[in-house]
Simulated scan of single mutants.
Amino acid sequence: MGCDGGTIPRRDELVRVKKKPEQKDKEAELAFRWRHCTIKQLPLQPPIVACSLGKLYSKEAVIEGLLDRSTLPDSALHIKNLKDVKPLTLTPNPAYDANKAETGDGYADGGKSPFICPVIGLEMNGKYKFCALWTCGCVMSERALKEVKSSVCHRCQKPFEPSDVVILNAEGDDLKRMEDNAAARKLSKKSKKKRETSTETSNAEDSSSRAKKPKIKKEEKAGPSRPRVEPQDPAFKKAKEDYSVAKDPTASEVLKSIFTTHKTASEQTRAHWVTYNPFYN
């Protein structure tokens, strides 16, 4: 019946003990998260993008998910359009060679990351925190941002705000901070758009008011040097086409005799002493 022949049973052979649940390999999980797309769980393919929460995606997978939202997992439902993701500018790792693992003609270090920090050279393998700047999309380590404090990007020299720093693959408190930063960026964008709209409206009102403003006439702008001629002035009446000197009661006979319309014009035998009349030459 057993236990014969001098065999000594072990405790686990006699007593049933509860098996411990299998634990995940943290290093393998980190390597998977930093090298695979969050939507399709396939290796990341360029162009690589990140959302406001720091998750990594292949842009092709994001476009397919937006076209068919049923394929999006719950972790990516916050992506409504392509404006919710940012293309990343990554620095290739010169020590990484993926072809060796494919051909099998050399040793391939699985811990090597295809990307590094452009400032201090740390590998982006999940052991160190890496950040992406939402303004320009450049990726670098958090240590580089802390050691070289600046308000401009270390790579492209583009200015950024503290709320523009997105921690990639954030967890715990960092994830909560990324959510707050995303809300702050949206609020800042709305307020900026509101200010631009109000400025455009005020400029349009100013231009319309300037267009409605009456222009100053030259006579008024010139001042008293040129007095305005009123219609009641006799000189103004004489400028009309129907005016005749012969019919003007205020004109003298000497003035009227100058013209050929005068009654004495028929008695003239030679040219007039003021005007030249060809009939008498």
Rank of each mutant, 00 (worst) to 15 (best):
P87H: 00
G172A: 05
A50C: 11
S266L: 11
D242H: 13
L175W: 10
T135P: 01
D12K: 12
G2C: 03
V229W: 04
I120S: 13
P249E: 14
G5I: 05
I39W: 00
H272P: 00
W34A: 06
S151P: 07
K112V: 07
P94G: 01
V166C: 10
G6T: 12
K149M: 03
L82T: 15
L90D: 06
K55Y: 09
F279L: 14
L88T: 07
K40C: 14
K158N: 13
L72G: 01
T260A: 15
K83F: 11
P92T: 02
G54D: 00
T260I: 13
V49G: 01
E230C: 02
E22S: 08
I258C: 13
N81T: 13
K186Q: 12
K100S: 04
K189G: 04
K247W: 03
W273H: 13
A265R: 05
T199A: 06
C51A: 14
L145Q: 09
E142K: 08
L14Y: 12
L66A: 05
Q23E: 10
S113A: 15
P43G: 02
F115G: 07
K149C: 02
C153T: 06
C37L: 00
R195I: 05
H272K: 14
R10D: 13
P231K: 09
A28P: 03
S113Q: 08
S163K: 14
A98W: 04
D105P: 00
K221C: 03
T7A: 10
E161I: 06
P214F: 04
E200K: 14
R35M: 02
F32K: 10
P47Y: 10
L44A: 07
I48F: 06
E13D: 12
P9R: 09
E161C: 01
A239K: 10
R226K: 11
V229R: 13
R10A: 15
A170C: 03
D242F: 12
K218S: 09
F130S: 14
L53F: 15
L67Y: 04
N169S: 06
A271F: 08
K20C: 07
K86G: 06
G223W: 00
L145H: 11
S191F: 05
E147M: 09
T260H: 14
V152K: 13
P94A: 01
C37E: 01
D84V: 01
S188P: 00
P118Y: 05
K247T: 10
T264H: 07
M140A: 07
A183N: 08
L42Q: 15
L145M: 10
R69V: 00
K213P: 05
V148S: 09
D248I: 10
L14D: 03
K149W: 05
G137D: 01
V152S: 08
V274I: 15
P43C: 05
E220I: 09
A211K: 12
N125M: 05
T260R: 15
A271D: 10
M178Q: 15
G172R: 03
S58E: 03
D68E: 08
W134C: 09
F160I: 03
